[in-house]
Design a protein around this nucleic acid. Structure first.
Lengths: 153, 153
DNA sequence: CACTATTAAATTGTGCACAACCTGCCTTGT
DNA sequence: ACAAGGCAGGTTGTGCACAATTTAATAGTG
C-alpha cells in the first residue's frame, strides 16, 4: 500500500501505464493466444471457441435454458441467440420454447451434438501438451484466476 | 505426467471437459471481466479497451508504424486499420504514409491525444483498488501469464 | 378481472478479432 | 531497365461481445 501511494504521487507514476506492467493486457493477450491455439483443433469439429464452450456446458448437463447457459458463460442473449442459431443450423442442438413458460427457450443436444463429445475429448489433452505445463501449474493458474479476478469483479 | 496418461485412458477422462477445470475458460472469462471493469473508466475518455491499448503504446513511444503497434499488441491490420481510423476521427492520432517508403503508415499522437494521458494516469490506480489485490499478487499473476502462456504459444 | 410490472429472449447497432484476399510500393536479380 | 517476388497496409466477410431497445409472455396488484 505504501508503494501505491508513493507511485500515485511521485513523477514515476506513469510506469503503471506501460503495457508490460499491465495485468489486464497479459490476460487479454493470453486469452487470445490460447484460443488461437484451440482454433486448429476446433476447426476439425467446425466449432468456434464460444460455440465449443456452449457444447461443454451442454455435455455436462443437457437441456438447459438460454439464460442458464448465459449465466455459466457470463454471456447475454445478444451473444447467445445468434450463436445458438448457428449451432442449430449445424444440427448440434435444438431450440424450442418450453410449454410451461413460453418465454423460455430450452436448448437440447441432438445425437449428432452428443457424438461430437467423443472427438472433443482429445482436445484438452492436446492443449495441455501444446502448453507444455504440468497439470499442477495449470491448476494453480486456473484457481488463481478464479480466486483473485473472477470472484472480485 | 502419470496422471495425464491415466486420465487419457480411463473412463473418467471427461473431467477435463468440465468448464470448471479449463484454464482457457478462466482466462477468457477473466479477460472479459477485467475489461468490463475498465469500461466505466474508459467511457470517460471515449475509448474502448483496444483503443486504450493503442494509446498506451503511443504514450510510451510516439510515432510508430501500424505494424509495430500490431506486433506489440498481437493485432493485424484487419483489426488495427479501422480502429486507427476511429482514433483519427476523434483527433487523438494522425495517420500518414512515410515519405521514405510509401507502403508504411506512421501513427502520431495529436496534442489532444497527448493530453489524454493525464486523465489516463488515474485508471491503473483505480483498477488496482477495484481488484483489491496487492501489487505483489498482481505482478506475480502477470509474470505467470507471460512466462507460462505467452512465451509458450 | 384488468392493468401494471417483470421477465426471457430476440433484435439492432457498434466495435473488435481474424481469415482470406487485394493493391500498390519497393527490392532483387538479371 | 524491368519483370518477379515480397511486403505494408487496406478490404471484405464472418462471428463474437455488449449496450440499448423491443417483443411477447407471465406474475403480481388493486
Amino acid at each position: 500500500m505504501h508503494n501505491l501511494i508513493v507511485c500515485y504521487l511521485c513523477p514515476m507514476n506513469d510506469h503503471l501505464l506501460k503495457l508490460d506492467n499491465q495485468l489486464c493486457f497479459a490476460l487479454y493477450a493470453s486469452s487470445r493466444a490460447i484460443i488461437r491455439a484451440y482454433r486448429v483443433h476446433l476447426n476439425k469439429l467446425n466449432l468456434t471457441y464460444p460455440q465449443y464452450l456452449v457444447m461443454l456446458v451442454l455435455w455436462e448437463k443437457d437441456s438447459q435454458r438460454v439464460s442458464e447457459i448465459g449465466e455459466l458463460l457470463h454471456l447475454d442473449s445478444g451473444t447467445l441467440t445468434p450463436l445458438l442459431k448457428r449451432l442449430e443450423i449445424m444440427e448440434y442442438i435444438t431450440r424450442k420454447r418450453t410449454a410451461a413458460d413460453e418465454r423460455e427457450v430450452c436448448i437440447n443436444l441432438t445425437s449428432k451434438g452428443n457424438n461430437l463429445k467423443t472427438h472433443a475429448l482429445e482436445i484438452p489433452h492436446e492443449m495441455i501438451c501444446k502448453l507444455g505445463l504440468s497439470e499442477q501449474k495449470i491448476a494453480q493458474m486456473r484457481e488463481d484466476l478464479k480466486e483473485n479476478i473472477l470472484s472480485n469483479l
